[in-house]
Write a protein that binds this DNA or RNA. Structure first.
Lengths: 186, 186
DNA sequence: CGACAGTGGCTAACGTCATTAGCCTCTCGG
DNA sequence: CCGAGAGGCTAATGACGTTAGCCACTGTCG
């Protein structure tokens, strides 16, 4: 159990710092090794390979989103909860755009639990809308699509015009709420 | 002007086939060279480097989206136009998930014109809603976020539950329409 | 008709990465 | 005090991207 300078968690910490500062494409094992002051192959004692490191990073980001989301929903309900959730989500992505871009969407067994937790929080945020069964699932999917789409585009700098992004996001929030309130078929 | 077996466009064709079949991560210059029956360095006679090839691929995908979107909006207006646009967008992404994932969101000068065209089509699709100036811009942003978010998540296989995706997408469409119809502040 | 230029392909060579194999050395539990 | 294993290291390999420099073919212009 030699000097535990490094550990899987510590490796992920360094990886996150690299992602934040230089973007997800800059996440390489040699870069992490450099930060950790260690030779590249040493990392394999803590992480299976680069692909797994990416999954771990993604899992960490999802964990942070769980925190942001649950804190937003805590003690609120209905429109208020939904707005807080969407605002918190967007604010996280805007604060850590590279980190957000490092999220892996494709379902991975390693992050399934955290993902389910996120879905659970979204379901909770929608509880007051009285959606049952499948209707709630559809609603969560739309909420996810709206939040994720906006976050991705904002993180990528895809919204170039001068218009205030806060206002755009307020409209998005309004869309989701209005759509849920009037959720018949179309 | 030796045997013009290859050209920038032909290189992009091969690249697209690779993306479709093996995903965007599999897009490497050697893979393209293999398909083209040519040594890797020969590609540099047609394309500046891998980064540029990716941009060209992305531009081609955006061009296809322009076609899909404009055909959807042609001769329709209001809810009908919006629904056709959203359905067409989703259907393209579902038909070519890897290709859709190869889209680069970060604004690039090379694809700026095509991107503007897309925004123009979305604006046209929203024309009947009578939005003016900034309001139209905010609406386009939300529409983009909704369509892109749903497309990305569906392409990544992020919607895992058994619920019918068509229904989820119908709800998304409903949200956008309901939100636009009632677009005051919130 | 024949030289010429440039287009497009090729080989050789490098540098960067990921990844594997195999070694060495602390450190800690007995 | 010893033995094991955790954790670090060097060496080696193989994919790629990229650059440099060479060569053949082709179409054009004297």
């Amino acid at each position: 159990m030699a000097r535990a300078a490094l550990s899987p968690d510590a490796v992920v910490d360094h990886a996150l710092r690299i992602v934040d500062e230089e973007g997800p494409e800059a996440l390489t094992l040699s870069a992490v090794a450099g930060r950790a002051g260690v030779a590249t192959p040493s990392l394999y004692k803590h992480v299976r390979n680069l692909a797994e490191l990416r999954v771990l990073v993604s899992g960490r980001v999802m964990g942070e989103l769980v925190e942001v989301a649950s804190e937003a929903v805590l003690g609120r309900s209905g429109d208020e909860a939904l707005r807080a959730l969407m605002d918190g989500w967007r604010s996280y992505a805007a604060r850590h755009p590279h980190r957000y871009s490092a999220l892996i969407q494709a379902p991975r067994p390693e992050t399934a639990e955290t993902g389910d937790r996120l879905v659970g929080i979204m379901l909770a945020a929608l509880r007051a809308y009285g959606l049952e069964g499948s209707a709630a699932i559809h609603a969560v999917r739309c909420l996810r699509a709206a939040m994720h789409g906006f976050a991705v585009l904002e993180a990528a700098g895809a919204f170039q015009l001068a218009e205030d992004l806060d206002e755009s996001h307020a409209l998005l929030t309004h869309m989701v709420m209005a759509g849920l309130r009037t959720a018949r078929e179309s």
